[in-house]
Design a protein around this nucleic acid. Structure first.
Lengths: 240, 240
DNA sequence: CGTTCTCTTGAGATCCCTCAACACCTGTGG
DNA sequence: CCACAGGTGTTGAGGGATCTCAAGAGAACG
């Protein structure tokens, strides 16, 4: 179960939207928020459900949180994965448009929406920072729409890996040894595919010696050029 | 070709993001912008191309502008359709992430980005209005991702029509007689389908007496309940 | 009243999904 | 230390929704 910890320390955070290739935006909380609650989430624990009233905005501190929408029959579309430093809840005004669930153990800092509104009014630049952050998220989301609407399974998976690689580099780590914090089913629901197709596509990339699987959650990129070529739909890099 | 008209009138606009079901946000320009340029666009004329430096934000005054991304081989994904009252360019900081093209004759008001920045600093509430606007657009985009990733052709087309209907109602018009300002190819590139599939799906909805086609750009919804049932993926409303 | 663009319809191909079996991994308890 | 169970990932075979290719019908326009 989850535990709540009150904290009086100021939370100053470097906000880097997932998959962002923009320069890093710095947004600081806490100067006027005297006490924000930090919350521990177990694997599969929900932070909120689609349709619920929005009470907080969340800053991911540790772990990865998935935002998703469901259809009546259970089909799921994962909208985004929120990594440490990402802010959750900027898309909705009043009511959550997505459900938010921890992929594994995670820690988030909960900021009440009224505190956000207060900060926007009191701290010059804060609102603008949030605007830029939301704008970047919109740009990322539209990039993902291109993948969902127009790319093949191989292109989708390659795009997914390239983005993880970029994020990895942005975090100061290597871009060729990637840790994949999500399961096949979550990758599938993010890319609009089935688990089987995701699995088969990983195998094809492996056989083509573009990647190597150290484990199910560790991918080594052997041919970065080829991978990004596939991601961008270059027909010379087609996999069979 | 396009004509540019200088204007000194204040442009006070009601901003309603496309497909929005949120309450209407009011944002006013012009109090500090003494002269904004209004621009006429011919059918298929581009406002900007993906990758270009962003110089302006645009307020659509008349007509519809499509934002799209291309893959190297020509595959296209339309990100959104901007209607009168919508603002274009809030997603990008510095460089355009999409190309913007008028679907038919259109008029836009051009607001220099530095004027926007000035307004954010000088007019309290302006930045917040833009934030809410961008947040709504993000929510809409994620709704569209569910369509692209997880819905069938019939569900996509039904969702598309329902959203046009909602927008129509929000504009004070009837929700059952819809005017469709885009061609089949544009609908296809928005929904991640081919023109042929879009055409066939319209025919199926027509045969099932859910809609009636007055012309290629005028759709009459005969069974709204059934249409929204299909849009939400209810298996009882499947079309064959 | 032809020219061109758009939309519709058909037939066959293809990519991905569905269903099914099996392999792998990890933790637990005998 | 092994047996087993449950969750997760892989692989195969077949089917189906959508795409591709192609022809023709309509609509718009000079």
């Amino acid at each position: 179960m989850s535990t709540n910890k009150h904290s009086t320390t100021t939370a100053i955070s470097t906000i880097t939207p997932w998959f962002s290739n923009d320069s890093i935006d710095h947004v600081s909380f806490g100067h006027t928020v005297t006490a924000t609650i930090e919350r521990d989430l177990d694997e599969h624990e929900h932070l909120f459900l689609e349709g619920e009233d929005q009470t907080h905005v969340y800053l991911v501190v540790e772990g990865v949180v998935g935002l998703y929408k469901l259809l009546a029959d259970g089909r799921r579309q994962i909208s985004t994965f929120a990594y440490p430093g990402d802010i959750i809840g900027l898309d909705s005004i009043g009511v959550h448009g997505n459900s938010g669930e921890a992929l594994s153990h995670a820690v988030v800092r909960c900021i009440p929406v009224n505190a956000i509104e207060k900060l926007i009014r009191s701290e010059p630049g804060f609102g603008q920072a949030l605007l830029y952050l939301t704008a970047s998220e919109l740009a990322e989301t539209r990039e993902q729409m291109l993948s969902l609407g127009r790319k093949s399974a191989a292109e989708k998976v390659a795009t997914f890996l390239i983005r993880i690689s970029r994020r990895s580099v942005a975090m100061g780590q290597t871009g060729s040894l990637l840790s994949i914090p999500m399961k096949r089913s979550e990758i599938a629901d993010f890319l609009g595919l089935t688990i089987e197709t995701v699995s088969r596509t990983f195998t094809k990339l492996k056989v083509a010696r573009v990647i190597r699987l150290r484990s199910n959650s560790q991918v080594e990129v052997l041919e970065m050029e080829k991978l990004s070529g596939i991601a961008e739909g270059n027909s010379t890099n087609v996999i069979h």
